[in-house]
Design a protein around this nucleic acid. Structure first.
Length: 952
RNA sequence: GCCGAAGUGGCGGAAUUGGUAGACGCGCUGGAUUCAAAAUCCAGUGGUAGCAAUACCGUGUGGGUUCGAUUCCCACCUUCGGUACCA
């Protein structure tokens, strides 16, 4: 009887589906374990061999935990809102829901083929109204919340309103907009409802603000940074400008410190933690204000502001943030970002033309341009001066594009002797570089080392080190009302609006005053309307502007026709939709109770499952999904909706599986295509060839290629040794590089168990590695040998050899799974089967536990063998075999050894060790005793030729 | 530039806390079986020298610590990933 994997795999996949083998219950006597793979975006291209890598690893772990007696939750779903389906809709007119549905069907077929232990009864799709109802619901909770810095958590907006009514906002310490005005309780009560609403919006955790976006006028849409290449749109190459638009924002900055602190409590990869830490970018320092000296710009001010301004109120202040307040006496100029709002106000008439030209030139340069060009130093003097808070000296104010408007305050106090960029700027424009460091030469470069700093030439700071001087300066600044200690974060609030169709609609309408109003929870979901076309409207509104029925009737709580809008009971709805990360920011919780239509999930469900125990996915989500999800989770925790502040205890990043692209080389001048060995110095153009046209020795199927690329059918192929050899290169696996390998064809040829084993065998899970099918015959051969081993199974007693092999394997496999070293355990299985085959082992006592060991990796064959051994229950619920160390040490003996007349100790040696081996071990030990500084060990454990451990 | 990961045979990769470097698989070589092939099985396979036993050299490079280093320390080189002037 041969190993018929097609029949076996088909049989067990049907069995698992029919018996709902992997359905998880929300209660159990067993301990819980939640294993989760990041859900995929169902793209039109289907799964390629890179996708399942993480799923297989997670599945192995989930199955292992089930064998270990856990109640395992292992769900799967789809992140089904997204751009590709929308773009397909724009091109073809097909509704994205249809495209998405088709793709999901294909994904499901492919996933089912691989034998995952998913509980499909819990599937979620982010684009399903029943699901996005709860995404909208979380948005509403955020809207109804503010961040109280005193309690350091999010609270209901009602508590804020009651404080306002009692004492105004003077004593409120909240994370809110910078321009929030101060008011008393009386003033608050006197405000109109609209004004109150607008003030509250400055406190809410989701709020409206004008944010700068990349606007492409030609496409009539906003583009992500990724979609812009060399300053023009990736699609079509149209110019892109920066434009302010009113957008929904998420006040993630309120959580900056807690997002940082939380990293210490979770077992996530260090590189990922590092990138979140850098992204949040905490820096400690001080803010300081510099007064702008009054001078000839009085005229300018009068003109620009159109008012008669007295000399006192006319003076402007520049606020800066610095991490080096100790160097404040080294300031010799200030630099503002060209976009800084003060630039227009303080520039003197003489400098005006030059400054305006520079500002304009900067605005034209794309952000990428500006960043790529680090070497060029540019800037312009504004003509204005600021007053040094301590020395009262005038300091020239410059503008320069090395200062970014979006970081800190958009202004820096330049200390050329202590910062290289300031130094370069000063050198370039021949500005003073005063030295304020003791015993440091700054003639060549700035001195940025704060550990070794002793301050000099700095009045009351002389002789102090960095720490002392910093504290003293902050004290003095605070006394003078010129600044204070401050912690600055690089993290910015997240833009939450997208001008797209295929996303969650906001549960928001706008009243007659244009103030956003929330649709009550009980009227959710607010479903996406039908539109005729998926592009922005002619007036530049988002695609939802095309909907004819997109207005809210506040009496009937229904979406009605836009034409009925009457500003009394029927209002326009928000036309933006939510971004891709909205739906993925709490899906892991929804799996716990996915069909609940009364609440986001029942308290019982979330109190049972708590959080994700193991989360596997790609590292590309480090500062996107994984940061936003932590933010939402912390918010849900604050508001008592989730019991845990971090949603995933442990996270593993699986590496990327890269493809091996193939190239043919076409001569630039003729219609000849040269084999790889013949290109030498010729001017050739490498052209991708589909990898399915290449055999294992890099030879091209020329006829196949000609059929595939009819435009090159006439080309002449120049061969070497009768063959056309392609060039190879490792690239990301992608449709456009024609290097995609689908799992389907491999399943067809070798079976899912082979594919699962092979993907694990390929290398360490977290490492990226090229796909190469050459070795798959090895693991396939292993499965065949495994199969054979069970053909003559009997009830004989196991030999000591048999037991040793088995327990060695149990130990190694258990360790490997716990350490996520799945690659080495595949090797362990192979060794085990080879040994048992050589031992002619046929006894059930060995082969039963072996089947359980293998079943996490190759579940189909394990089920079949399990049944063959007479079991009627699925192997999925069998217990993981107990490791018994006595089977391994059985053959070692302890020998008392003495030498040098006085050293006495025991050596634990294998029983079959030869005399020469023992002598070698004693010699080795003799050398080792030096290391022990003359102490006599109690016991030395030796394997032939090698000292394993010294005890005592 | 900064942050992170990593450099081991022809290839993918093993190697517990420092303890026989190259497990396991692929590939390759030879053999068995076969009319032949596939499949299967057996043996060999880091390099150099040698008929051989064996010797020497070998984990990116150069130093160091150690009885002993792929592993620890210092400096450098290379590759990949992330990030972008962060005041």
């Amino acid at each position: 009887m041969n190993y018929n994997f097609r029949k076996i795999e088909d049989k067990w996949q049907k069995y698992w589906a029919k018996n709902e083998t992997f359905k998880a219950e929300n209660q159990s006597e067993k301990p819980k374990f939640y294993a989760l793979s990041m859900f995929p975006y169902p793209s039109g291209a289907g799964l390629h061999v890179g996708h399942p890598l993480g799923y297989i690893a997670c599945d192995i772990y989930a199955r292992y935990k089930r064998h270990k007696g856990y109640n395992v939750l292992h769900p799967m779903g789809y992140d089904s809102f997204g751009l590709p389906a929308e773009q397909y809709a724009i091109q073809t007119g097909q509704h994205p829901a249809i495209t998405t549905d088709t793709n999901i069907k294909r994904y499901r077929e492919q996933l089912d083929q691989l034998g995952f232990s998913f509980d499909w009864s819990r599937e979620v799709r982010t684009s399903d109204p029943k699901y996005y109802k709860w995404t909208q619901w979380v948005f509403i909770q955020l809207f109804h919340s503010w961040y109280n810095n005193r309690t350091d958590k999010a609270e209901s907006i009602d508590t804020l309103v009651s404080v306002f009514e009692k004492q105004g906002n003077v004593k409120v310490d909240a994370t809110c907009d910078d321009d929030t005005p101060m008011f008393t309780a009386e003033e608050w009560k006197g405000y109109s409802s609209t004004k109150q609403q607008n003030i509250l919006l400055k406190y809410r955790l989701t709020y409206l603000a004008d944010a700068e976006v990349n606007w492409c006028p030609a496409l009539g849409t906003v583009l992500a940074n990724d979609e812009i290449v060399n300053g023009v749109s990736e699609r079509g190459g149209h110019p892109v400008i920066r434009k302010k638009m009113t957008q929904w924002m998420m006040r993630i900055t309120a959580y900056a410190q807690r997002l940082l602190d939380g990293l210490n409590t979770i077992d996530w990869p260090q590189p990922l933690k590092d990138s979140q830490t850098n992204w949040i970018g905490r820096s400690e320092g001080a803010s300081a204000t510099f007064d702008v000296l009054p001078n000839s710009n009085v005229e300018v001010l009068k003109k620009t502001e159109g008012e008669d301004i007295s000399r006192t109120s006319m003076s402007h202040k520049i606020e800066v943030f610095t991490t080096r307040p100790d160097t404040i006496f080294g300031v010799s100029f200030m630099t503002l970002a060209p976009e800084h709002e003060l630039v227009q106000k303080i520039t003197t008439p003489e400098q005006r033309a030059e400054v305006e030209a520079y500002v304009e030139a900067t605005a034209k340069r794309s952000e990428r341009d500006r960043m790529a060009d680090v070497k060029t130093i540019s800037g312009v003097f504004t003509g204005a001066y600021a007053e040094h808070p301590f020395t009262k000296e005038p300091i020239p104010i410059w503008i320069g594009d090395y200062v970014l408007a979006s970081y800190g305050t958009g202004a820096v106090m330049a200390v050329p002797c202590g910062d290289q960029r300031d130094y370069d700027f000063a050198k370039h424009f021949k500005i003073d570089i005063p030295n304020i460091f003791e015993g440091v030469d700054i003639s060549k470069e700035a001195f940025a080392d704060k550990v070794n700093t002793i301050v000099a030439n700095s009045d009351f700071l002389n002789g102090l080190n960095y720490r002392e001087a910093t504290r003293k300066v902050i004290d003095e600044l605070e006394k003078m009302g010129h600044g204070k200690g401050k912690i600055n974060y690089r993290l910015r609030d997240a833009v939450f609006s997208r001008q797209r169709y295929w996303g969650e609609p906001f549960p928001v309408y706008y009243n007659a005053e244009g103030v956003p109003q929330i649709i009550d929870e009980e009227h959710l979901p607010l479903e996406l309307p039908e539109v005729e076309k998926y592009l922005p409207t002619e007036t530049g509104e988002p695609p939802l502007g095309n909907a004819t029925h997109w207005a809210w009737n506040t009496n009937t709580y229904e979406v009605v026709a836009n034409s009925l809008i009457d500003n009394k009971t029927i209002f326009p709805l928000e036309m933006n939709t939510m971004p891709g990360w909205a739906g993925s920011s709490q899906y892991f919780n929804r799996y716990m109770d996915p069909h609940n239509d009364k609440t986001i999930y029942s308290p019982e469900a979330i109190n049972y499952w708590q959080d994700v125990d193991l989360y596997i996915g790609g590292s590309e989500h480090a500062t996107g999904h994984l940061l936003y999800s932590r933010f939402w989770q912390k918010f849900l925790f604050d508001r008592g909706i989730a019991p845990k502040e971090e949603f995933a205890k442990k996270l593993i990043n699986q590496g990327m599986i890269t493809g091996t692209s193939a190239f043919v080389y076409k001569d630039l001048t003729s219609n000849k295509i040269y084999s790889k060995g013949l290109i030498d110095n010729k001017d050739v153009n490498p052209i991708h060839a589909d990898v399915s046209l290449i055999n294992s020795s890099d030879e091209l199927d020329i006829e196949g290629f000609k059929k595939w690329r009819p435009d090159l059918a006439e080309a002449e192929f120049i061969l070497e040794e009768g063959k056309y050899v392609v060039g190879r290169e490792i690239e990301k696996m992608s449709k456009s590089k024609y290097n995609v390998v689908n799992p389907d064809q491999i399943c067809e040829e070798y079976g899912a168990d082979s594919l699962r084993l092979y993907e694990m065998f390929l290398g360490p899970l977290e490492q990226s590695k090229p796909w190469n099918t050459a070795g798959i015959t090895g693991v396939h051969g292993f499965l065949k040998k495994l199969w054979k081993l069970y053909l003559n199974i009997g009830d004989s007693e196991p030999t000591p050899e048999n037991l040793k092999t088995l327990h060695k394997t149990i130990k190694k496999v258990e360790e490997d799974i716990e350490n996520f070293s799945f690659n080495t355990s595949v090797s362990t299985f192979m060794i085990c089967v080879n040994e048992l085959t050589a031992q002619k082992c046929t006894c059930k006592a060995i082969l039963k536990p072996l089947a359980v060991l293998v079943s996490s990796y190759a579940p189909h064959i394990a089920e079949e063998l399990w049944e063959l051994m007479g079991h009627t229950e699925s192997i999925a619920n069998a217990n993981f075999p107990e490791f018994d160390a006595t089977h391994l040490v059985e053959r070692t003996k302890e020998y008392p050894i003495s030498f040098n007349g006085r050293m006495r100790f025991k050596m634990q040696l294998p029983a079959d060790m030869g005399k020469a081996d023992i002598e070698a071990a004693v010699m080795a030990h003799e050398q080792t005793t030096k290391y022990l500084e003359g102490r006599t060990p109690k016991k030395v454990i030796v394997v032939p030729g090698r000292i394993v451990n010294i005890v005592g």
